[in-house]
Design a protein around this nucleic acid. Structure first.
Lengths: 220, 220
DNA sequence: CTGAATTGTTGACGGGGCGTCAACTTTGGT
DNA sequence: ACCAAAGTTGACGCCCCGTCAACAATTCAG
């Protein structure tokens, strides 16, 4: 059936145009692209239909992939949502870490942390809204690795701060919880306002915490 | 047809043994019983399998009812969970309200609210644990009527407190969020400890808030 | 008490999403 | 050019869901 003629010119590979970008093989590149296509589609569909109403097929339909392919990348729609959470946490964590490293005292620590978190939430509003509408405001997925890691990191920094005398000697675990709780709940309300006033929210959270911590200084 | 004889002794109804309890007809009583049987079974199964893994049939299997009957009482397993949340909120709300009404100043308000909430959480630990373990998937459902009402009530009380000068003049919505966030997150950590120390957790949350609010007094 | 109407229960059934898998296609190495 | 390895495909079987027509229990009227 096949024409044995070899005259057919090797057609240039469509994707070979950017030589410097071709470091990884084509295999690896498609994998990357597919994964990102699924994540993108998922973010879109979650926002449209809500997490609960979305099916895996709804997501895959937004891509040019087949149903089965989805499962080469994620075990379930829940895992896609976790991956989106991971992405988000992955973006905000370095910023938070920088702020904390910069802090020379507990005021800077508190102010920097809240401000950075609120600023990020405002910039990644789409994701936060999906999260809010579909997970409720309280608590994020505790089985999302990057988020858990972020919480642990915060707690460790708080322990260090206490050890170094930057923070008053209070229960580190409770203090971490309190910061997280205030951050998420105030953030939630901030995002529902028009216009969104990051300054105001950050100031409120910082003032509350700074006053509270100051009053706790010296207590065991 | 009708026998005119009146001599036949009215036989006691089987269920008529407790005359005072027979007010509602049998129909109404079975309905109540079925509903409670389902709620009880659901609480048990959720605790055993986790919310996500539980199916409606798992729940109904723990009762002597048929599958279809479930849907005479609840639309879905989600609605059963909401009903459990409602039950819980229904129990704690009056206690919180009492505490708040009793409060003569903002210190009493804060201390009473946190203490009562933590005490309740410890007493209803089974439900809170189910909620915690599945908060990823559900979180505290923001569409659970009793919970929403409880949040609204807290916010209204905070507004009143501010109007009366019992609380400093800060953003009431943010303050409500901060209290809720701290309450849930600190509660979460409290329940994971052994032994559970309600005093400690309540003291931490109260101190933090009291110090914070005191420092905010006089600020706009 | 008796029959009819009303209300509640039952479990089988159709519908649909899920995750798998054998056949197929594409890639990369020789 | 050929082959092994890796990835893709979509049809399939499974299970859960929510409904519904048939059935049972309760209530009501006479």
């Amino acid at each position: 059936m096949k024409d044995s003629k070899v005259a057919e010119p090797k057609r240039l590979e469509d994707e070979g145009v950017t030589p410097s970008a071709s470091q990884p093989g084509k295999r690896e590149r498609t994998k990357q692209a597919n994964r990102e296509a699924i994540l993108l589609a998922a973010a879109k569909v979650f926002a449209e239909l809500g997490y609960g109403a979305t099916t895996v097929r709804d997501i895959i339909r937004q891509t040019d992939l087949a149903a089965g392919t989805f499962y080469n990348y994620f075990k379930s729609k829940e895992e896609v949502f976790e991956a989106l959470s991971d992405q988000s946490a992955l973006r905000v964590r370095p910023r938070l870490r920088d702020e904390r490293v910069k802090a020379q005292n507990f005021e800077g620590f508190i102010i920097g942390s809240f401000r950075t978190f609120f600023e990020y939430a405002e910039s990644d509003r789409d994701y936060f809204n999906v999260m809010r509408r579909n997970t409720g405001a309280l608590r994020v997925r505790m089985d999302t690795p990057e988020i858990v890691a972020g919480f642990d990191e915060l707690e460790q920094d708080i322990r260090d701060g206490i050890a170094q005398g930057l923070l008053p000697d209070v229960d580190p675990s409770y203090l971490t919880g309190a910061m997280i709780g205030v951050a998420f709940e105030v953030c939630d309300r901030m995002l529902q306002r028009e216009p969104i006033d990051v300054d105001n929210a950050a100031k409120f959270a910082s003032d509350l915490f700074l006053g509270g911590l100051r009053s706790m200084t010296g207590k065991s």
